[in-house]
């Protein structure tokens, strides 16, 4: 009976890669994730964003059947994470958030183990990803740096070309060059029809590849947004150095500009949305230097949702 049902689900929802319905996990009294309703379509790249402890890893570990839900349920490729684990994990590539490898093998031996265990993955697929990430397979994984371990983790997640990639903080430890290579791997995977569900707390990296982002805070889904609409919301910190002291009042009245602090010729503020009004105002003075931090989730997006304005968007979850 369960097998029959699973097959029916596949037929019914073949374009849905991940589906969670009221997915809830409590650790005793402590909330992991609560009432998560999320749908990720096949071939989509979805970023799963939120600060530490928001419930991202709990959700991912529920999808992988390391945890069992307190309430609600999840399906991956129409299959049940627990009942169909063996069949399902052949089609999932998983990168844990806290990467620890079993044993003391060289990277090559460890990846051979994964290759055989996943159903005889061709070795050329392993070396292909290892070369893309510039990974030396002859070294013992125990002695590797965090970044190199992360590369081994990425290779084992991608090497069997799974239908679904579930990646927990995939870029942590990678240098900027390798982060770009990783993003290229995600784009290629998406182009090949693979679904990517990746958690992060850095908006910028997700923004480059994701079709949509789902934002969690305090164990609940705050919003699901298309990436195109994110830029408008981006709150960035801006610092402008002028030749001469300026009057703060001139800038604090500008639309979207707040937290204006002027000390002599240096102006610091945050800009919500379009930066154009600030640029125009600044251009009336002699500008020596201008610094604008890349809008990252912690200080921009989440601050928006933390203050509750985004709470109403939760109803759009799964849209």
């Amino acid at each position: 009976m369960p097998a029959r049902k699973a097959r029916d689900d596949v037929g019914m929802t073949s374009d849905v890669a991940l589906l969670t319905e009221d997915l809830t996990k409590f650790y005793g009294q402590r909330r992991g994730i609560e009432g998560l309703n999320l749908e990720v379509r096949a071939g989509e790249v979805v970023g799963f964003l939120g600060p530490n402890g928001a419930g991202k890893t709990t959700t991912i570990r529920l999808l992988l059947d390391f945890l069992r839900p307190t309430r609600g349920h999840a399906t991956v490729l129409g299959l049940d994470p627990r009942k169909d684990k063996a069949a399902l994990h052949r089609q999932i590539g998983y990168l844990p958030g806290e990467l620890v490898f079993p044993g003391r093998d060289k990277a090559e031996d460890l990846l051979r183990f994964f290759a055989v265990a996943r159903g005889d993955v061709a070795w050329s697929q392993v070396t292909e990803f290892a070369e893309r990430l510039d990974l030396d397979l002859s070294r013992s994984v125990r002695t590797m740096s965090k970044g190199n371990k992360q590369k081994v983790g990425l290779v084992q997640a991608f090497m069997h070309r799974p239908a679904v990639l579930v990646l927990d903080e995939p870029t942590s430890g990678l240098d900027p060059l390798m982060q770009q290579e990783f993003l290229a791997m995600v784009r290629d995977a998406s182009g090949a029809g693979q679904t990517v569900f990746m958690s992060s707390h850095v908006l910028a990296e997700v923004q480059q590849v994701a079709d949509r982002v789902a934002i969690v805070r305090d164990g609940q889904l705050a919003a699901v947004e298309r990436v195109e609409s994110l830029g408008k919301r981006a709150v960035r910190a801006v610092e402008i150095h002028f030749d001469d002291p300026v009057d703060p009042a001139e800038f604090s009245v500008l639309p979207g500009v707040s937290d204006v602090v002027v000390s002599g010729p240096v102006l610091k503020c945050t800009v919500d949305g379009r930066i154009d009004p600030l640029i125009k105002a600044a251009a009336r003075h002699e500008v020596v230097d201008m610094l604008s931090a890349e809008p990252d989730l912690e200080e921009t997006f989440l601050s928006f949702y933390y203050h509750g304005e985004g709470a109403g968007d939760a109803s759009r979850a799964g849209a």
């Binding site: 994990h89 052949r90 999932i92 844990p96 990467l99 620890v100 490898f101 994964f114 265990a117 159903g119």
Partner: peptide, 12 residues
Amino acid sequence: GGMELMLANPVS
């Protein structure tokens, strides 16, 4: 933590 990747293989 080393068990997680072993359990991520296709076995029940």
